[in-house]
Nucleic acid binder design. Structure first.
Length: 816
DNA sequence: CTAGGGTTAG
């Protein structure tokens, strides 16, 4: 993705703030004359001088058409008396261009002309063209192009080739092609300029096409320069076919120097052909001159890493040290990346020691890689320490530390660092802004999000889809879908990530209709959802127990060809079970060709709500047979099945097995299942002791389960104790107070009933009424007790009365 | 006088 960068000192120099060097020999006294952005000087002279001509010419360079009257002289004289000749101005121009002062170089040329030297004497046009190119102003390049055309200088192949190159560097591919077509003679350099220009401009296929055209249509055979560019293009488009052809050609011609060798290895690695990369690499052991080339080793190691050959990368690095190839900063950066990948802190620390002994610990890039390594290997403290001690921080290093803090689940730390950063720098880049937005999202802090949003707009990142997606996510997490939609609508383009952020926002905030609409709109834009989109929407379907929603999403995912995805199917199993359609869950489970642990856990959990416990136990046996490893979720499913069926014996068996056979430390969830199981079976004291003895903190759910058991087994004394535990955890708890009151009521403890009910009133607590809903034509209609707001409520209540009569006729006896 | 150079920090 394209990243906006603040202007650096280089570009500042290019635009406006032209620096004129004083330390180089300056034979001419210079006056300034405005010319577009850049300023030019010209020799002090009469009003008829050429300098005054381009002052009036609306930022156009006016090249002198006729030499001035005195120009019969071969050698001009400047005002301070220095003799100027063509060759000394040429040398000066070259010097200025090489040192990065193109404006001064151009001034020298004009001065030369003003001194009466005719342009046709000049033989440094390629250098002058380079100077124009360095101004990064395509208009000025076109002007010198026209000027040279008039002079007839374009017949010179050097001049043409230089112009080609400069056009590429100014990013005007169209003009380059036009010139290339018109050039009457093309040599290898012309072709190479085109091939490498295409390569650098990102048109790798065009680059390879030109390479082939040169050989096949024009019979020009490539040299090593052409091969280097073409190999770069092969790497980028991963064209192993072309790469191998070039490899063969290089071998046949015997032009394999160290640059070509490393490019070839790089090409094979980028194409995923590790075997051939190794083959080329082994060749260097026969060539003493290039065996010690560090870069080749670096390319080889980083190639191994990017192809996932981590042990080989380690081995090669060790070999490199053994045969004493000098590692450089790039080796260190690459190896630190390897440590991060391996999550090997011990080796990372050894590399840190090596970095210090090599004296590379002050290298900004190495320091940044060290910070990254420590964070990724889980040593946040050391990562921060290196950052704090670093003498040479830059935006990349700040980005490394801030984004790693967010990834390491320290969003507060990240926001503090960001605060320090922004005070010192005043601008942000996209990596930092993304990290900060993620921190806001995970902390759900909207004010900070709004502040960063302001910064996003100010820094002109508001049309960046990555940043936009992160902003949508922040607003969605904070529940402000209106703002999320606004940000989304303003994005110039949307991709899967941004759509996902919006859809999940609607889903998580329980807007099923908007969620589905967004899914349809995404489809309309021809963007296909990925498995994660599907899984996350389905988890919302499950949360909402919304059957129609679930079916529609299922159909949608089917049409998108995601029905064979494990993640999607696991979510479908859970969602259908939650919506009460266990048959669909089972059908999906049976049809799945690829199942993982989560698939088994989902179906066990789903079935646990509906079928006989024995079936669950059998299924668990099958799960083990298929080599699946039970985890906490598996045991939660098993234990809750035992609890529903009152199977104490099996409950204890699985609980013990979890600890002993699978070395899984029971969590609150599993303890809750056991307390529920014991309580339902009337082992109230045992259940109570279990809560007190378990190593984790209790919550209202585990106590609530026991309270319900106390109610059904009529132990009002324990109920009081249990209830007090709940009220201590949640003083405003209303549901459990009602449960307690009902318990006393059932056993005729009227004084206690009054006490609890008075407390409820005194605390101003109100129980939110129960609620049910039904889906009709993609709309969810909700109903609460006594609600008459629905416009068909009369008919609805009439239907309810009729149903009640029918139910009683059928023999149902209501408890109330 | 003109083309080109490998790995490479968030």
């Amino acid at each position: 993705m394209a990243m906006a960068r603040p202007l650096d000192s280089y570009s500042l120099r290019m635009y406006g703030n032209s620096s004129i060097r004083r330390d180089l020999p300056r034979p001419f006294e210079v006056i300034h004359c405005e010319l577009g952005h850049a300023s030019f000087g010209s020799v002090t002279s009469s009003s008829t001088s050429f300098g005054s001509k381009f002052r009036n010419s609306r930022a156009e360079i006016q090249f002198p058409e006729n030499p001035s009257s005195e120009s019969i002289l071969r050698h001009g004289t400047s005002e301070n008396g220095a003799v100027i000749d063509v060759s000394s101005s040429g040398k000066l121009i070259r010097e200025y261009v090489d040192d990065g002062f193109p404006e001064d170089a151009i001034k020298v040329y004009f001065s030369m002309l003003e001194c009466g030297i005719p342009p046709e004497e000049f033989r440094f046009f390629p250098c002058l063209i380079k100077a124009f190119g360095a101004l990064s102003d395509k208009k000025k390049v076109r002007q010198i192009h026209g000027y040279l055309l008039k002079l007839g200088a374009l017949d010179d192949i050097y001049v043409g080739n230089s112009l080609l190159d400069v056009y590429w560097k100014c990013g005007v591919a169209k003009d380059t092609f036009a010139l290339f077509e018109k050039m009457c003679s093309k040599d290898l350099v012309s072709w190479n300029t085109m091939i490498s220009g295409l390569c650098h401009s990102g048109d790798h296929l065009g680059s390879l096409r030109t390479f082939n055209q040169m050989i096949l249509e024009y019979g020009v055979f490539p040299n090593r320069v052409a091969c280097l560019s073409a190999l770069s293009s092969c790497s980028s488009v991963e064209s192993l076919f072309h790469g191998r052809e070039i490899h063969a050609y290089v071998v046949k011609k015997g032009i394999g120097d160290e640059f070509l060798v490393s490019k070839l290895i790089d090409m094979y690695m980028k194409c995923g052909d590790v075997k051939n990369a190794e083959y080329v690499f082994r060749g260097i052991f026969n060539e003493d001159s290039i065996r010690g080339n560090t870069v080749i080793w670096n390319v080889m190691i980083s190639g191994y890493i990017s192809n996932g050959y981590l042990p080989q990368a380690v081995e090669l690095f060790q070999e490199m040290l053994v045969i004493q190839i000098q590692p450089d900063f790039s080796t260190m950066v690459t190896i630190l990346d390897l440590c991060s990948e391996l999550l090997d802190l011990a080796v990372g620390m050894q590399i840190h020691a090596l970095v210090i002994s090599l004296g590379l610990d002050n290298d900004l890039r190495v320091e940044t890689a060290l910070i990254d390594m420590y964070f990724k290997c889980g040593d946040t403290k050391s990562g921060l320490e290196i950052f704090r001690m670093s003498q040479n921080r830059n935006t990349v290093m700040w980005g490394a530390v801030i984004s790693n803090c967010v990834k390491s689940d320290c969003p507060n730390e990240a926001l503090e660092l960001f605060h320090d950063y922004i005070i010192g720098y005043g601008y942000v880049d996209s990596v930092i802004i993304l990290a900060v937005l993620r921190a806001c999202s995970s902390l759900i802090i909207k004010p900070k999000g709004l502040e960063v949003h302001g910064l996003v707009v100010k820094s002109r990142f508001d049309s960046d889809i990555f940043v936009g997606g992160a902003l949508v996510d922040v607003y969605a997490k904070c529940g402000d879908m209106e703002s999320a939609q606004k940000v989304f609508d303003r994005l110039p383009t949307r991709d899967l990530i941004t759509w996902n952020a919006l859809i999940l926002g609607y889903a998580q905030n329980e807007y099923p209709n908007e969620t589905l609409k967004a899914c349809r709109d995404m489809q309309f834009e021809q963007i296909r959802p990925n498995a994660e989109t599907g899984a996350r929407i389905l988890s919302v379907c499950a949360q909402l127990s919304a059957m129609i929603f679930c079916k529609e999403v299922h159909g949608y995912l089917l049409r998108q060809g995601l029905d064979s995805n494990v993640l999607v199917n696991n979510s479908l199993i859970a969602a259908y079970a939650k919506c009460g359609d266990i048959n669909s869950s089972w059908a999906i489970f049976e049809k799945m060709r690829e199942k993982n642990e989560v698939s088994w856990n989902s179906i066990l959990r789903g079935l646990g709500m509906y079928v006989h416990a024995d079936k669950i136990f059998v299924l668990f046996g099958k799960m083990k047979e298929e080599g699946m490893k039970p985890d906490h979720a598996t045991f939660t499913s098993l234990l809750s099945a035992c609890s529903h069926a009152g199977r104490i014996e099996e409950g204890w068996k699985y609980f013990r097995s979890m600890v002993e056979d699978y070395k899984l430390e029971p969590q609150l969830e599993q303890y809750t299942c056991m307390v529920d199981l014991l309580g339902r079976a009337g082992h109230l004291k045992q259940a109570y002791d279990m809560i007190l003895m378990m190593p984790c903190n209790s919550d209202d759910k585990i106590w609530g389960s026991l309270l319900a058991s106390c109610k059904s087994h009529g132990d009002e004394r324990l109920a009081e104790v249990v209830a007090n535990h709940i009220f201590k955890l949640d003083p405003t708890s209303i549901g459990y107070r009602v449960l307690l009151a009902n318990l006393y009521e059932e056993y005729g403890k009227w004084n206690e009933v009054i006490r609890v009910r008075t407390e409820i009133k005194g605390r101003g607590l109100r129980k939110s009424p129960g609620c049910s809903w039904i889906e009709i034509k993609n709309k969810i209609h909700t109903f609460t007790a006594g609600d008459r707001s629905h416009n068909q409520s009369e008919e609805i209540y009439a239907a309810v009365r009729n149903l009640s009569i029918e139910v009683e006729k059928a023999g149902y006896i209501s408890h109330y």
